[in-house]
């Protein structure tokens, strides 16, 4: 794939708002003049299953899906899903993990254990790992449901998007009555990254 293409894999559990996150990033990429493709999953997989959406942008995009080992960024809305999709991350890529834990059925029923200290194990393998409690941060902004937008703020900044492009995308895509909360969440994610982190990510 072309070196000037950026691939973002967004993974989580059905119902966590991965679709909206992918649409905001995609819209911001369009505003920057990129060619953009987004791949979404609708239907049965949305019922609490493992879900993935994919955003690709650059001068010219063909495939709507990202190759294994070719994602520049993985935005994981849940720890277990971060681990599941790890093989899609490019060597040197950025892994952003929301430290939420949502037990899948085999864990809830006590059949198998939820792997311990996943974010630490991932960070040991992936040098560029950022773990954060995006759900908690979003709750502080008014609703835990805006965790997706917190992550968009962080990843958007790491990828060099201007804040106003992200804000405009959020305004265009979320329902009117929750715009303010989501703008707050976006900024919280944006401000989560300090300059050291940014230089690590862009290194």
């Amino acid at each position: 794939m072309a070196a000037d293409t950026t691939n973002i894999l967004i993974v989580g559990v059905g119902g966590q708002g991965t679709l909206l996150a992918s649409r905001v990033l995609a819209q911001a990429a369009v505003a920057q003049g990129h060619d953009v493709k987004v791949s979404e999953i609708h239907g049965m997989a949305q019922r609490g299953g493992s879900v993935v959406s994919q955003v690709r942008y650059g001068p010219k995009i063909f495939s709507p899906i990202i190759k294994r080992g070719d994602a520049d960024v993985i935005m994981a809305f849940e720890k277990l899903e971060a681990a599941r999709y790890l093989p899609f991350l490019k060597k040197g890529g950025l892994m952003v993990i929301n430290t939420d834990r949502i037990d899948p059925l085999p864990v809830m029923s006590g059949e198998v254990a939820y792997p311990e200290k996943l974010e630490e194990k991932i960070a040991r393998v992936v040098p560029k790992t950022i773990s954060l409690d995006a759900t908690g941060i979003a709750a502080g902004c008014g609703t835990s449901r805006a965790a997706n937008i917190v992550l968009v703020g962080l990843v958007g900044r790491a990828l060099g998007f201007p804040l106003d492009a992200l804000e405009e995308a959020v305004r265009g895509l979320v329902p009117q009555k929750v715009v303010d909360i989501n703008i707050k969440a976006l900024n919280a994610g944006w401000n989560y990254v300090d300059n050291d982190l940014i230089s690590m990510v862009r290194d």
């Binding site: 559990v13 059905g14 049965m44 997989a45 949305q46 019922r47 609490g48 299953g49 493992s50 277990l80 899903e81 681990a83 599941r84 899948p104 059925l105 085999p106 864990v107 198998v112 939820y114 792997p115 996943l118 194990k121």
Partner: peptide, 9 residues
């Protein structure tokens, strides 16, 4: 690490 499956429910 073995990753537990997450089937739809």
């Amino acid at each position: 690490e073995s990753i537990p499956a997450r089937p739809p429910l």
